[in-house]
Lab assay of single mutants.
Amino acid sequence: KLETFPLDVLVNTAAEDLPRGVDPSRKENHLSDEDFKAVFGMTRSAFANLPLWKQQNLKKEKGLF
């Protein structure tokens, strides 16, 4: 399991300012399950079932792209 970080560490943070080991294209993977659901309004599995373009739009909207 990946290390999780608080939302404010990941949202609207440039790649070079992210904690070590965080993939800038997969910031959402480093949210706790609770934060993930609070941000996206759905579970990880529901998010994973969305088309890629919709996932990317949601990530942009939430500052996690």
Rank of each mutant, 00 (worst) to 15 (best):
V39N: 02
D23L: 04
K37F: 15
R20N: 15
L52V: 12
A48Q: 13
L58S: 02
K60M: 12
K62A: 14
W53K: 08
N29C: 12
P51Y: 01
V11G: 03
N49W: 07
E3V: 12
L18P: 04
L50K: 01
P19G: 04
K60Q: 11
L52F: 13
L18Q: 04
K1M: 13
A15Q: 10
L52T: 09
F65L: 15
E16C: 14
R26G: 07
W53N: 08
S45Q: 13
D8S: 14
L31Y: 01
L64W: 08
F47W: 07
M42A: 00
R44E: 01
L2Q: 13
R44C: 02
L52P: 10
R26Q: 11
G41A: 09
V9I: 12
K60A: 11
Q55A: 05
E34I: 10
T43G: 09
P6A: 07
E61D: 11
F5A: 03
L58P: 00
P24T: 06
K37R: 14
V11F: 06
P19W: 01
F40K: 00
L58T: 02
L7H: 04
P6T: 07
K27A: 06
R20V: 15
V11H: 05
D23Q: 04
L52C: 15
V11R: 13
R20W: 11
G63T: 01
A15V: 14
T43H: 08
P51Q: 04
R26I: 05
P19S: 03
N49P: 01
D23Y: 04
W53T: 09
H30K: 02
N12H: 10
T43I: 08
F40T: 00
F5C: 05
W53Y: 10
N57G: 11
D35V: 08
E28Y: 02
L64P: 01
L50E: 07
L10Y: 01
T4S: 08
K1R: 13
A14D: 10
F5G: 02
L58C: 05
A38W: 12
F47Y: 06
F47E: 00
E61I: 11
D33S: 06
P51E: 07
E28D: 03
T43K: 06
S45D: 13
N29W: 13
N49M: 14
S45R: 12
L2V: 14
K37Q: 15
A48V: 09
F40I: 02
S45Y: 14
A38Q: 13
E28F: 04
L10G: 03
Q56H: 11
P19Y: 02
K59F: 05
F47G: 00
L64E: 02
Q56G: 07
E3L: 13
E16Y: 03
K27G: 03
L50F: 05
A46D: 12
K54E: 13
F65I: 11
V9D: 06
F47N: 00
R26S: 09
K60C: 14
A46S: 10
A46R: 10
K37D: 13
S45I: 14
F65Y: 14
L2T: 11
N29S: 10
A38L: 14
A14H: 11
T4Q: 09
V9P: 02
Q55E: 00
E61Q: 12
T4M: 08
A38Y: 13
Q55G: 00
F36P: 00
F40E: 00
K59G: 01
K62C: 08
K54F: 11
T13D: 06
G21F: 08
V39D: 00
P6W: 04
L64C: 06
S32W: 01
V11Y: 06
T13L: 10
A38P: 00
K1W: 10
E3G: 08
E61A: 12
D17Y: 08
D17S: 10
S45L: 13
E16P: 09
T13N: 08
L64A: 02
N49K: 14
S45W: 12
L10W: 01
G21Q: 08
T13G: 11
H30R: 03
T4F: 15
E3W: 06
T4V: 13
V39A: 08
Q56N: 14
F40W: 01
L10F: 03
L50T: 01
V39R: 01
T43A: 09
H30D: 03
F36R: 00
L31S: 01
L18S: 04
K37M: 15
K54Y: 12
L52M: 12
K27P: 07
V9R: 12
A46N: 09
D35H: 04
N57D: 14
G63R: 05
N12Y: 06
N12W: 07
D33G: 04
A38M: 14
N49H: 12
D23F: 03
N12Q: 08
L7A: 06
L10D: 02
E28K: 01
E34H: 10
E61M: 12
D35I: 05
K59Y: 06
F36N: 00
P51I: 01
G63D: 06
D8W: 15
S45E: 14
N57F: 12
F65W: 14
D35M: 06
L50M: 09
K62T: 08
R26D: 04
A15Y: 11
A38H: 11
L18E: 04
E61P: 01
K54D: 11
N57K: 14
K59A: 04
L18A: 04
K54L: 15
E34P: 08
N12E: 07
H30F: 09
E61K: 09
S32E: 04
A15F: 10
G41N: 13
R20I: 15
E34N: 10
V39K: 01
F47V: 00
V11Q: 13
F65R: 06
N57R: 14
A46E: 14
T4G: 04
N29I: 09
Q55S: 02
G21H: 08
P24F: 04
L58A: 05
F47L: 01
P24A: 10
F5D: 02
F40C: 01
L2D: 09
F40S: 00
A14F: 08
E16S: 10
F47H: 00
L58G: 00
A46V: 12
P51H: 03
V9F: 15
L64D: 02
K37C: 14
D8F: 10
P19D: 04
Q55L: 01
V9Q: 10
P51V: 03
N57S: 14
A48S: 11
V11M: 13
Q56C: 14
S25N: 14
E28T: 03
L2R: 11
E34V: 10
F40P: 00
F36V: 00
R20D: 15
L31R: 01
R44V: 02
F36H: 00
K62G: 04
P19C: 06
P51C: 06
H30W: 12
K1L: 13
G63M: 05
G41F: 06
K37E: 15
K60F: 11
F5K: 03
M42F: 05
K59S: 03
K27N: 03
A38T: 14
V9A: 09
L52N: 09
G63H: 05
P51L: 01
K27S: 05
A15K: 10
K37W: 15
K27C: 06
P6E: 06
N49Y: 09
F65H: 15
D17T: 08
S45T: 14
E3S: 09
R20C: 15
L50A: 01
A38F: 13
T4I: 15
N29P: 03
A14W: 06
R20F: 15
A46T: 11
K54P: 00
P24C: 07
V39Y: 05
E34Q: 11
F40Y: 01
V22Q: 03
G63F: 06
A48Y: 15
Q55H: 00
L52S: 09
N57T: 14
D35S: 05
V39F: 06
N49D: 14
K37I: 14
D35P: 00
N49Q: 14
E34T: 10
M42P: 00
K59I: 06
W53H: 09
V22C: 05
P24G: 06
V11E: 05
S45A: 14
L18H: 04
N49T: 13
R26M: 09
D35C: 07
T43Y: 05
L64M: 07
Q56W: 10
V11W: 06
Q56E: 13
D35A: 07
G63K: 06
P6F: 03
D8P: 06
L18C: 07
R44T: 02
F5P: 02
V39T: 10
E61T: 09
F40D: 00
R44A: 04
L52K: 11
K1N: 13
E61H: 08
V39E: 02
R44Q: 06
N12K: 08
D33I: 05
T13V: 14
T13C: 12
K59C: 06
N49E: 12
S25C: 15
L2P: 14
D8E: 14
L50I: 05
F40M: 06
F36W: 02
F36M: 01
L2C: 14
R20E: 15
G21D: 07
P19V: 02
V9E: 06
D23R: 03
E16M: 07
L10H: 05
K37S: 13
F36E: 00
F36D: 00
G41T: 04
L52A: 10
R26C: 13
F47T: 07
E16N: 10
E28W: 02
S45M: 14
D33A: 07
M42Q: 02
L31H: 01
L50S: 01
K59D: 00
Q55K: 07
K27Y: 04
D35Q: 06
E3C: 14
P6L: 04
E61C: 11
